[in-house]
Design a protein around this nucleic acid. Structure first.
Length: 252
DNA sequence: GCGACAG
DNA sequence: ATCTTGTCGC
């Protein structure tokens, strides 16, 4: 069976990103986003995929919903999925989005009252080569407010892990401190955030959909007990737990 | 040409 | 993403 060459596939994907990008709303669309203390916000979601060691095709897709501001788990869904595309930096959404959307559909079907009012995504939003990362992609297709939170710096539009960048990181003294991620064009694509007092390494926050950068950063800070915001952390922990119990590693 | 490169 | 337990430090 023949398939499209990878460079042709990538051209199609770039085209789709440019197309969907037109739908991104980079501003607060919800009442709670403007309210003091995020009054009116009751449910925050997190999504993640975990893999088995030697297998990059089978994965556990996870969706968690936590109460706000308590950050207690209200809902957790684990589902084994089969990935159909490889990981290529800049095209993560084509690998993960279909399964994350499926998880949101299951929630809509089974517990619609628990639908999150905002979803934290493991990866970037506007902080992306073409300003349309996973958090934007999922946000647009699900039509939900989304925030991108990456644990590592993607080298984007002149933003690199240079001495200057490391120097800026060292200026982050306490939880909530930030510095902007500014593209060569001068546009601020996201912010590095010290998410907890204990962690020196920042997370990289960017707009996914239907939220402003300032609100995204303040909300990420408000949802972080440790370095990784709690909705994503719970999704990560629970998907790994699922793999441990259903696919125990073989010992020698 | 070489290296960098979210998860 | 994953390979991996204990260990050093606050």
């Amino acid at each position: 069976m023949s398939v499209l060459p990878q460079d042709e596939l990538i051209k199609m994907w770039e085209s789709e990103q440019e197309n969907l990008k037109q739908q991104v709303l980079e501003r607060d669309t919800e009442e709670w986003q403007r309210a003091s203390g995020f009054k009116g916000l009751q449910r925050v979601g997190g999504v993640d995929l975990s893999f088995i060691k030697g297998d990059d095709v089978k994965a556990c897709a996870q969706l968690t919903v936590l109460s706000y501001p308590q950050l207690e788990v209200l809902y957790a869904d684990s589902q084994m999925v089969t990935l159909s595309t490889p990981y290529i930096a800049g095209f993560l959404a084509f690998r993960e989005t279909p399964h994350l959307l499926e998880a949101l559909r299951r929630l809509e079907r089974d517990k619609p009252s628990l639908m999150p009012q905002v979803v934290f995504v493991d990866g970037n939003g506007l902080f992306h080569y073409r300003e349309f990362g996973l958090a934007c992609h999922l946000g647009v297709l699900a039509d939900l407010p989304c925030v991108g939170v990456a644990k590592n710096l993607l080298h984007v539009q002149g933003v690199v892990r240079s001495g200057e960048h490391l120097s800026q990181i060292s200026t982050l003294q306490k939880a909530g401190d930030t510095f902007p991620l500014t593209a060569a064009s001068g546009r601020v694509l996201g912010k590095a955030l010290r998410s907890s007092d204990k962690s020196t390494k920042p997370v990289y926050v960017s707009v996914g959909h239907r939220i402003s950068l300032d609100t995204a950063v303040r909300l990420t800070s408000a949802c972080s007990r440790y370095r990784v915001p709690e909705p994503i952390r719970q999704a990560d922990m629970r998907s790994r737990e699922y793999l441990r119990t259903h696919f125990p590693s073989q010992g020698t």
